[in-house]
C-alpha cells in the first residue's frame, strides 16, 4: 500500500529523516516509535505531502504523493490540534469534513452514532466551539473526524496522548477493528510502548531519522522495546 524509497529530509544540511526502504502492506496496523526528534512527525508530514522530501519519494497505492493529489481521497489524518477548526462546534466540523469527503449529513451521522461510547457524551451537543474543549476532547473529535469518508489509509500522530484511560482502551479497540475487519491501513505513532504493542501488528523504531528496528509484534516485543529504550538512556 505504502512504499517508501530512499526518502530523506534535511533542514540546513542536517538530516532529520533517512529511510532507505519501508513497505507497509494494505490492512496493516503500523506503529512508529522513537524519542523526541526521531522523525516520526516528519515522516507523517511527508506522507501527507505537507513538506517536500529532500530526496526519494513515497508511493501510496501507486500514487506518488509529492507529484499527484490523487492520494487525498483515500487518505485521512489527525496530526495535531491544527487539524481542527477552532471556531466550529464538533458537529459542524464533522459535517464540514464530511462535505469535503463527499459524505452527506446522514452518512456522517451514521458514522458518529458508532462512536457514541468513544465520545462519552462530551463531544456532541455541547454548544461549545472546538477551541474551548479540553485537549483530550479535541483529540477525540480529531480522531473521529479522520475516520469520516471510509479512508483506506489513516494516519494518527500520538493518538493516545492526552486521552483518559477509558478512551485509550476504546481507541485501541477502534484501531484494531479498522485494520483487522475493514482492511484499513492504520499508521500510529506513540510514546507509550504498551499501547503501541497492544495495537500494532508491526512496530518500527526510528532513531535520529533512521529505522533501527522493524519488529513483527509478539509477546516478546514489549520487552525488547523496553530494553532498547532503557539501554539508550544509560548509554
Amino acid at each position: 500500500m505504502i512504499t517508501t524509497s530512499n526518502l530523506s529530509k534535511a533542514y540546513n544540511n542536517v538530516q532529520v529523516l533517512n529511510i532507505e526502504a519501508l513497505e507497509i502492506p494494505k490492512g496493516q496496523s503500523f506503529g512508529l516509535v522513537g524519542n523526541n526528534g526521531a522523525g516520526k512527525t516528519t515522516y507523517f508530514s511527508l506522507l501527507l505531502d505537507l513538506i517536500q522530501p529532500t530526496s526519494g519519494h513515497i508511493e501510496s497505492n501507486g500514487v506518488l504523493v509529492s507529484q499527484s493529489e490523487d492520494w487525498k481521497p483515500f487518505t485521512s489524518a489527525f496530526i495535531d490540534e491544527s487539524f481542527l477548526i477552532g471556531y466550529l462546534t464538533a458537529e459542524e466540523y464533522f459535517y464540514f469534513i464530511g462535505d469535503l469527503r463527499n459524505q452527506n449529513k446522514s452518512d456522517v451521522d451514521a458514522l458518529l452514532a458508532q462512536f457514541e461510547d468513544f465520545f462519552h457524551g462530551e463531544i456532541l451537543n455541547q454548544k461549545k466551539y472546538l477551541r474551548d474543549l479540553s485537549k483530550g476532547n479535541q483529540k477525540k473529535a480529531g480522531i473521529v473526524a479522520a475516520l469520516i469518508g471510509n479512508p483506506e489509509v489513516i494516519i494518527l500522530d500520538e493518538p493516545f496522548a492526552n486521552l483518559d484511560p477509558t478512551t485509550q482502551i476504546r481507541l485501541k479497540g477502534i484501531i484494531k477493528d479498522l485494520a483487522a475487519s475493514k482492511g484499513v491501513t492504520v499508521l500510529v505513532s506513540s510514546h507509550d510502548l504498551l499501547h503501541v504493542t497492544d495495537v500494532c501488528e508491526r512496530i518500527v523504531v526510528l532513531e535520529k531519522g533512521e529505522v533501527v528496528k522493524d519488529l513483527e509484534t509478539n509477546e516478546a516485543t514489549l520487552k525488547e522495546l523496553e530494553a532498547h529504550f532503557s539501554g539508550e538512556v544509560i548509554a
Partner: peptide, 12 residues
C-alpha cells in the same frame, strides 16, 4: 492559517 495543514491534506 490555524488549520491550513488540515485543509492541505484534505480532499479539496
Amino acid at each position: 492559517s490555524e488549520y491550513y495543514k488540515m485543509l492541505m491534506s484534505q480532499n479539496i
